[in-house]
Structures are given as structure tokens and as C-alpha cells.
Computed example of a mutant assay.
Amino acid sequence: MHTLWKGSISFGLVNVPVKMHAATDSRDFQFNYLHKECKHRIRSVKKCPTCDIELGMDDLVKGYEYEKDRYVVLSDEDIASLEQPMSRSIDILDFINLSEIDPIYYQKSYYLSPEETALKAYRLLTQSMEESGKVALARVTMRSKQHLACLRVFDKCLVMETMYYPKEIRHMDVAWDRVDPTEVELTMARQLIDNLARPFEPEKYHDELYEQTTRLIESKIAGETYTAEAPVKGGKVVDLMEALRASIALTENEKDSMSSGQTQVLEAGSGGNPTDKPKSTLTPRKRAPRRAKEA
């Protein structure tokens, strides 16, 4: 697995050297712009609208717009001077309960694996965190930005979730909080939620748009036509109580169908479903990973 960053986890006087790896992978298709006539890929050109000349990377500087069309220029040296002295350290600040962190704070997930010299210390940290039921709130600097982060155990590995700071979270005016549903409406809504409640099985969820895009591209490559399935449109909600009753009736029927379906599967054994569609072998091209900077 490609290493994005090298550093160490520090808490108290304990220091655990680790490597960072991407924990997720974008499944988006990357499309290129082509010339309509010859089908060759066009290139992006950086051009100054004032000087009317094409520019290279050496001609560019970083600027911050502090007023409309007014910029202050920051050099690489200016930015480097702000680099934190502990930029290669993931500093644990506190151990807290995972349930206390709302998912809105999470940005991106990274795996942390131990260096060869830190296997025991890494195992000690993961096992003690797992047994305590706690996660670690930490601070780390990456790419000249200081992040708040959450360290937790997943599949025997440490996962680091970079987080937004509280000031980066927007808050809405919840005008609907002043509307009070009736007790009957609340009872029916709770029943509908109970009917739809399931254990979390991540494998059963899939990206339908990604799958349809895959089939579209494969059809184009093969010179065939492909018609996407039309999405099912929901009915117009005229009366809230009527919509709740209809939804509860529908989910009750689905629960009965699921129960009978599970019984049939158990009776039929573990045979495959003959109507299952074959899985596509088409995968989006991955972007070339950035090389890890030297510590």
C-alpha cells in the first residue's frame, strides 16, 4: 500500500513511528475533454488575461484575495515559516467516546501502519484503545495545514480521520423546530422507522449511478446502445397521515416478503441466484499517487 506520509504518534512519553496510507479510494470516472472533430485530448493552458501570454509553473505565485481584486502575495518561504515544529507528529490530546463526535466533523480517512521498529508499541496502543472503548482526539500537520483528527481502531488497524474545526461547521436557522407534530403522527413515524430498521450491512449498498455509467461506457466500447433504467418517482404527498399509513403498510408487506425470502434461501441452500447480473471488469483509472515527502 502506497505511503503518503511518515511520522509518529505521541501520547505522554510514548512515541510510535507510523506510515500513513489512503483508507478510501475514489470510484469516480475521470472524463477528459477532446476536440470534437479529431477526438484528441486538449490540454489546459494557464494564460494571463491582462498580459495575454501563456504561463508556466515558474511564472505563478500564491496570492490571497483580501478585498475584491486585491491580493497579497505569499512566497513559498513565507508559508514554510509557518510550518509547525512537530509537523511529523500526531499528537494525542485526549481520549474520548466515539459517540460524542458527530459525523459532520469528519473529512477523510487514512490508515496508519507501524514502522518495523514499532510493532509492539503499535499493538499495545491499538489493543488498549479497543479494550477501553475510547478513541483519541489528536492534532497533526499535513501539507502546511494543521488538522484536528480522530484516531480509532478498525480491523486491527489504526485509522485517522481528519476533522473540521468547530468554526468550519456551518449552522442553520432551524425554523422547523418551532413546529410540533401530534402524538399520533410521532407514533406512526416511529413505527415506520422501526419497520425500516436493519442491521448495518455495508455490502448491500452500492452506487447505482456508478454501475449505470460502467454499463454505458462498456456499451459504447462495444458499439452497442444502452438505455438507463428510469428512476422510480415517488408519489405526491397530499396528506401527511395518509402518507404515513401507506408507508407503514408498504413496509409491513416488505418485512413479510423478506421473512419468506429468507426461509426460501435457507431451504434452497447456498446456491447462487441465476438472475444475478455478471459483475463488470471496467474500473476507473486511478490518479498517480503523490510521493511521500521526506521527513
Rank of each mutant, 00 (worst) to 15 (best):
S26N: 12
A295Q: 05
Q30R: 15
P103V: 04
P85E: 05
F31C: 08
R88V: 01
K286T: 11
D276E: 13
F154M: 12
G272E: 14
K19Y: 01
T182V: 03
I90D: 00
K120P: 07
T162C: 12
A138E: 03
S219A: 15
K108W: 06
S219C: 09
K293T: 03
A118I: 09
R43N: 11
R41E: 15
D59Q: 10
L186P: 01
T141E: 14
E37W: 04
D155A: 11
K233E: 05
R285W: 03
Q264R: 15
A80Y: 05
V61I: 12
C48Y: 06
A118G: 12
D256A: 15
L98M: 14
N97G: 08
E203L: 04
T182N: 07
D25H: 09
G235Q: 06
L240C: 04
K68L: 07
A175G: 11
A228T: 02
E294K: 11
D276L: 07
P103I: 04
Q30G: 05
E201F: 00
D239C: 01
T141W: 01
R285N: 12
Q212F: 00
A292V: 00
A138R: 01
N32D: 10
G235S: 07
S81L: 03
E185Q: 13
D52E: 14
V237A: 06
A118W: 05
V18I: 09
K145I: 08
Q127P: 04
E37K: 15
I96E: 14
T225W: 00
P274T: 07
R27W: 02
K255W: 02
V159T: 08
T24H: 04
D102G: 08
L4T: 02
I221A: 01
P278N: 04
A197G: 09
M142N: 04
A288F: 05
E254K: 14
D155I: 02
L98S: 15
G271S: 14
E201P: 01
I53Q: 12
Q30D: 08
R88K: 14
D59M: 06
L216A: 05
D78A: 08
Q127T: 15
D180V: 10
M129H: 06
F31Y: 12
Q212L: 05
T141R: 04
N97E: 13
D173V: 10
Y33S: 10
K255N: 15
S270A: 13
P231G: 02
R190G: 02
E267L: 14
R139N: 13
L119I: 10
L186V: 02
W176I: 07
T141K: 07
C38P: 14
Q84I: 02
H21K: 10
S128Y: 08
R123W: 07
L124E: 10
E254V: 10
A228F: 00
K156R: 13
R287G: 14
S10W: 00
K19F: 01
P274A: 09
N32A: 11
P199A: 01
G12T: 00
E54N: 13
E267R: 13
V73Q: 10
V232I: 05
V14D: 01
T50L: 13
V174S: 12
A249N: 12
L186N: 06
Q264V: 10
K145Q: 14
S259D: 11
M258V: 13
N253I: 11
G56E: 06
D173H: 12
R143Q: 15
S99D: 15
T3Q: 03
G63D: 03
A197S: 15
